[in-house]
Amino acid sequence: MADVMVEVRDLHKQFGALHVLKGVSLQVERGEVVVIIGPSGSGKSTLLRCLNRLEEPTSGTIFIRGEEITDPRAKLPRIRRHIGMVFQLFNLFPHMTVLENVMEGPRTVLGMPRAEAEARALELLRKVGLEDKARNKPATLSGGQQQRVAIARALAMSPDVMLFDEVTSALDPELVGEVLAVMRNLAEEGMTMLVVTHEMGFAQRVADRVVFLDQGVIAEQGSPEQIFTRAQQERTRQFLNQLHWDADDETGAPLGSGERR
C-alpha cells in the first residue's frame, strides 16, 4: 500500500532574477530512499530546503504526510516536527553538550520530561556509536562525530522523513564512511529519506531511486542501476562521466558500468 510521504507539485524557486527550480514534481513513498544528484547550482539543496520551508517556494505546492506545508495558514513548527534535517555544516548547538543537543528537540518542542528525553537521547547516541561522548561539548568532536550527533538529534524527534543536505561534503574523506554507515542503517530500518549527495557509492548501494537534477529540473530519475549504467539522457551521462573521471583521479576506485566497489 503506497503511502506518499512527500509530494512536490510543480515547484518553482527564484532568488531575485535567478530561477533555480523550474517546475520540479516529485513523490516519495514511505520507506523510500531517494538520492538526489546533479551539478552544482542545479538546485538540489534548494529543493530539499523548500520541503520544510527553510526556503520559501516561489510557486508550487508541497505536501508532507498529506498535509500541505506550502499553505500560508500551515502551522510550520508543528509540521516540521515530522521532518528531520541534517545539514552540511552540522549546526550543533555549541553551548550545549552532545546529550543536551539530542535532548533539545524532545524537551523543548515536544515537552517531553527530562528523564524520558535523556533516555531516548542516550539510546540514539548508542545507535550512532557516540554514547561515550554524551557529556562532551560538540567542539571537542571530529566532524564525522558531530555529524552523527546531528543525525541523532534529528532522529530524536521520531520524524517520518529525514532530509540530508550534502552531509558528508564538509568532512575529511576518512570520516565520510562512519556517517554513511549510520545513514545506511537508517535506510535499512525503513526510514523515508531524501539525500542530496555527491557520494555515488552510497547512491548505488542504498538508494531506491536516484533523481538527477540539472538546471532546476529533474532531467532523469530511476533505480540506481538504471541511472548509473543505462542513463537515457545525454546530460545525465555527461554528468556521470565527469564524476567517474574525478573518481578515478582521487580515489582510484572507478565507478559505473557494471563495476561494484
Binding site: 520544510n52 528531520g84 534535517m85 528537540g105 523543548t108 518542542v109 546531528a150
Partner: peptide, 13 residues
Amino acid sequence: RGQREAAIALGMT
C-alpha cells in the same frame, strides 16, 4: 544562520 536553521528544522517556534 545555521543555528537558526537547525532550531527551526527541529520545529521550534
